[in-house]
Amino acid sequence: MLILGLLAVAGLVAPLCGLLLQLDPGAFVHQLGRSEVVSALGLSLAVSTIAVLIALVLGLPLAYLLARVDLPGKGLLRGLVALPMVLPPVVGGLALLVTFGRRGIFGGILGGLGIELPFTTGGAIVAVTFVCAPFLILSLEAGLLAIDPRLEAAAATLGAGRLRVLRTITLPLLRPALASGIALAWARALGEFGATITFAGNLAGETRTMPLAIYTALQVDPPAAIALGILLLALALVALVLLRGRLAVTPLGAGAGEGR
């Protein structure tokens, strides 16, 4: 048991250590200053943040429906929501392309409206949202299911209308799930590669996010790829640790931490 556990840890950590061992601090700092890197990093942060915000705006109501409303075929709906999690991202990108691409099903309609998604930053945002939203939605649904319905019932009989119950009871109690969902979705968004390159292409400054920049650098300049990889690794770690630790514990404070 112990040996297998240690083996698992070694398997997970060894590649990361390998990456770190390749790090040349001087080259790393030099890489950080390059305009391509700055552009890729800025694009990654912007795309992933916008994608998570979109996922939140659309995903919170959907999670509420899944958790609280008796819908026919809810199992199927939940399966569909989770599908992008298990779908190879490149297939997701392909699906987006044949749906929203210039010759796709809705491509004509979007084109008529003057919206062009494939091979634009907008397309990268769509691809990243498609891939990261399920993490947020399923996390929110689990969080909603974990809230004791009697709390909301008690609030309702005490005179609180639906909106007030949502604002004063449901959402505050949902904060830990919200925080971990955002952290997971954002980290996933930051690392998105397959769907983005398939749907949005690899255009420097427009759709070349960090993972795409790493892929590109690997063809011509492996040390640069390593430096970028470490940067992305650090970013993902920061996302997980900061968001999870902070948002989950602080706002609810003593009440939620000790309450259940």
Partner: peptide
């Protein structure tokens, strides 16, 4: 419920933990 003039003390009390 809010318009009925009722108040409920549910089983297990259901105090708002936050």
């Amino acid at each position: 419920p809010p318009e009925r003039g009722v108040a409920l003390m549910p089983q297990g009390l259901a105090l708002f933990p936050h």
